[in-house]
Design a binder for these strands. Structure first.
Lengths: 261, 261
DNA sequence: TTGCTCCTCACGTCACGTGAGGTGGC
DNA sequence: TTGCTCCTCACGTCACGTGAGGTGGC
């Protein structure tokens, strides 16, 4: 009942290149309905047109072939839709990020911020916190962090602990340098350490407050790192951020102290 | 006067991974300010922070490294901005396309269009036209075609020719099958062939009218190709489109005729 | 002196694209 | 019979990432 067509015709019906179709066959994403045993010619059924067009749309949304395979092979529609929606959310975030990047590009191309007078060397006292650490990819951190902080707040409320300060996070060097590393979300808690409450030890850091769109946070990192390097006071340890308000973030850069802290 | 920092610190100041920084050095996009001759250690100047951050933003916008190099190496600002704006236009188109794709995804995932009753076998008479052919990439055709048609209209007006029909284009098989092939834009002209006016010879084609968003044009191709294949009337030659109105396109698929036309 | 940072290959990844060289179908 | 379509390798591309194996700096 199905009509079979050669790969060239199927290409025109789906807007997928012949090379792409052969690749999808190789990786088992879209198998031809039939293969001529003597010539090896692929024959596609016209009933495969819709799935091929769906694949093309997924690829237009930059969905990886493996994810497309999962969506198409989902045992039920709910499972497939869940994976699809997760990807669409990511696309949506990417879209918004791109638009903000375009909007702020001119500003960024102008000269570097001069923030020398705004950097403050601050002794941060030790702090009782609930915390959660994980290996996080740079690209997904902006999705991971709010979830992690929300969880910490929920747990604190649930166990009757009192939040006693502003949310924050620690970022291992590798997180920046390799694009993947340990990130620790923390929420300050009143009282002293116990089974769930940990202590962040005191340290001295150079602090610069970032105000404005979070996409420009790198500019504050650049300005702060520059000043620490110019003064020759670089220390070691994770970078720390304090989330004062929606568009107000303190960036804390480790500096060396006389006592080696 | 410049302060030099190691690659790890520069990574944190710019949000570029160490691997990316080394790669940019290898390809000559961003050279360290200094390289230790004995150890090979790269040293970056804090004054390089802004250009590195600009590179990161360009990459966020998927600008290829070669294009970034051109923007950064532009002899004057106008030249660089021109290349940048061209890319931003492409990004903007991509953004809009992605948003339309997301919006129409549900619809597309439903069953294939049944257009059997709407396909018409039509004998297209020979036609006097002004035309322009070029090798066009699939991805840029929607930008190329309006320009090409506009040029043809301008030339026709300039040489006193009368437009006598609706704009159209021919698409070689390779355009779809290899993602790159000959596309011919044409505008019908009153009168007969001369030095600039050519003749499209008569042919018989299966015609299906696409209505609605242009992003769904593949669905009409799929439906039309399916019907031609099912009836076993496939012919050869380029596919032809007629641009009747803003969201109304006739798709013409070559069919075989008794006389071999 | 001990780690830690940094170095250079060499190879892998992802989704195809690019030929080369050859056979099958109408 | 002649092209034209289709086939299978093998390798290239782009922008890095992933180790392996080793040296330098504080």
């Amino acid at each position: 009942v199905d009509t079979l067509v050669a790969i060239g015709d199927f290409s025109k019906m789906t807007y997928l290149s012949v090379k792409a179709l052969r690749h999808y066959h190789d990786v088992g994403l879209l198998e031809p309905a039939d293969i001529d045993p003597s010539s090896g010619y692929r024959r596609y059924s016209t009933s495969q047109v819709p799935v091929a067009q769906a694949i093309r749309r997924f690829r237009d949304l930059e969905m990886p072939l493996e994810e497309i395979r999962l969506v198409l092979a989902a045992p039920d529609e709910a499972t497939g839709n869940k994976a699809l929606l997760r990807h669409l959310e990511r696309v949506q975030h990417q879209l918004e990020h791109t638009q903000r990047t375009v909007a702020s590009l001119q500003e960024v191309l102008s000269a570097q911020v001069d923030a020398a007078g705004l950097v403050e060397i601050r002794h941060l006292p030790s702090l009782s916190v609930v915390m959660h650490s994980a290996q996080v990819e740079f690209d997904v951190c902006s999705e991971w962090l709010p979830d992690a902080l929300q969880h910490l707040h929920d747990e604190a409320a649930h166990s009757g602990q009192t939040v006693a300060g502003v949310d924050g996070a620690l970022y291992a060097d590798k997180f920046f340098e390799a694009g993947l590393g340990e990130v620790t979300a923390f929420v300050p808690i009143a009282g002293t350490a116990g089974s769930t409450v940990m202590t962040l030890s005191a340290c001295t850091m150079a602090v610069l407050t970032h105000e404005g769109p979070i996409d420009d946070l790198d500019r504050t990192y650049g300005a702060l790192g520059t000043i620490v390097a110019e003064r020759g006071i670089a220390g070691s340890g994770p970078i720390r951020e304090h989330y004062i308000a929606e568009s107000r973030t303190e960036v804390c850069w480790p500096v060396a102290t006389a006592d080696g802290g």
